[in-house]
């Protein structure tokens, strides 16, 4: 046997072995991707500023002032100006980020657990279980997501909690579909059969061989849904179904400032810019993640 070893191992054509591990490789690649790093930093800044809003905000976001309505940025210490009721825009944007980001992220998180879990089960078991789960999802798919979110939260009576429940329900079907597709693909690869052929119990095969290979696509898709979630949540608030005034929320602020677009266009655009920056950075980060997690490229 030793001769065989020598023959094969000595002229090893590969460079020195990289003992970096899967997540190590992903991290290495992310660190060397300036675009993703930049947007990641921006995203982190947005999240941190929302979390620390009470300490960062220069003014009380609820304090109105008739004389200071719709002032331009820089007026009397209002760095980003004031809104239609004379409240400080910067403070409201910072506080608004808390609600908006929560409404964007919590539903996606819940939907990833529920929808992703259902999808993996459907994909792995196949057959009747798959048909049952996926047909139910198809029913939800028949409605446009915006319409569905509006209908559900409208039927439940609006409010932050109901809005989040509505968004969760909206996100379950697409996540389930992505998880199911990814699992079915992996499920049909020989290495899963090979693992089954060792006689190992199904839960071990699922845990060690299937989950690791579907987690990537699911997480990437979920992270791209967060930006959709923020936009949908803003949309709900815009329609008066999500956050109720005077709570600060980007969507709600955008709605309220709509009429002021001719008076103070810069201020009116600000909530929109916040939404745009958040979703763009989320998309860029999830794109970078997708590239970094593809080990084979």
């Amino acid at each position: 046997m030793s001769t065989t070893i020598d023959k094969v191992a000595t002229p090893a054509p590969m460079a020195a072995p990289r003992q970096r591990g899967y997540w190590g490789t992903v991290g290495y690649r992310l660190r060397h991707d300036p675009v993703t790093l930049c947007f990641g930093a921006l995203l982190l800044a947005i999240i941190l500023s929302a979390v620390f809003a009470p300490w960062l905000a220069p003014f009380d976001p609820y304090r109105e002032s008739i004389i200071r309505r719709l002032k331009a940025p820089g007026y009397m210490g209002h760095m980003l100006g004031t809104d239609e009721l004379g409240r400080d825009m910067l403070s409201r944007l910072l506080h608004g980020g808390r609600l908006t980001l929560t409404m964007g992220m919590v539903p996606v998180l819940l939907a990833t657990l529920i929808g992703g879990g259902l999808g993996v089960v459907a994909g792995f078991l196949g057959g009747v279980a798959n048909a049952a789960i996926m047909r139910v999802m198809d029913v939800f798919y028949a409605f446009p997501s915006v319409l569905l979110a509006v209908a559900i939260s409208g039927a439940m009576g609006g409010g932050v909690l109901n809005g989040m429940i509505a968004l969760t329900l909206v996100f379950i079907p697409p996540l389930c579909r992505v998880a199911e597709t990814a699992t079915t693909q992996v499920r049909n690869l020989d290495f899963v059969d090979a693992a089954r052929a060792t006689g190992a119990p199904l839960r071990l095969v699922l845990w060690h061989h299937v989950l690791g290979n579907v987690l990537g696509p699911i997480l990437i898709y979920a992270s791209s849904l967060i930006s959709v979630g923020i936009i949908l949540a803003s949309g709900l608030s815009f329609l008066g179904l999500g956050v109720k005034p005077p709570e600060p929320d980007w969507g709600l602020m955008l709605n309220a400032l709509r009429q002021a677009i001719y008076v103070s266009p810069l201020v009116a655009a600000m909530p929109g810019i916040a939404i745009f920056l958040t979703s763009v950075s989320l998309n860029m980060v999830s794109d970078g993640l997708r590239a970094a997690m593809d080990v084979r490229s």
Binding site: K7, V8, P11, P13, A15
Partner: peptide
Amino acid sequence: TIPGAPPDMRALPPGCSFAP
């Protein structure tokens, strides 16, 4: 058999590629 495996095209041996 021919021992070993075909070389990595990114790092060819300096002389005859088949020499190893």
